[in-house]
């Protein structure tokens, strides 16, 4: 009886694992694959956008100062 209970308990613990195996996920890509390359590419894209925003921000700041100085004199 005890043995049977043990087997039953073991089977139960396996159930979630079986349920998960049915769905395809890119596990290999992340464990040993190249998902970090994708992270890197997206980070670069976002960095480029950010740098552009910063440059615009600074350019507008310079223009604002220029106009403020001109108005002051």
């Amino acid at each position: 009886m005890k043995k049977f209970q043990l087997i039953l308990a073991l089977c139960m613990t396996c159930l979630p694992a079986f349920a998960q195996q049915g769905v395809d996920m890119a596990d290999t890509m992340r464990s040993e694959g190249k998902i970090y390359v994708v992270v890197g590419v997206m980070a670069i894209v976002f960095t480029v956008v950010l740098v552009y925003l910063v440059l615009l921000d600074r350019k507008i700041g310079r223009l604002e100062r220029k106009i403020r100085n001109r108005a002051g004199t």
Partner: peptide
């Protein structure tokens, strides 16, 4: 915050769901 979401969003664990997958 966006950098964090890029890294954690692509490499973090997500629920396994049919059809949706990754």
């Amino acid at each position: 915050l966006v950098y964090y979401s890029l890294v954690a969003g692509l490499t973090g664990e997500v629920p396994r769901m049919a059809i949706l997958n990754e």
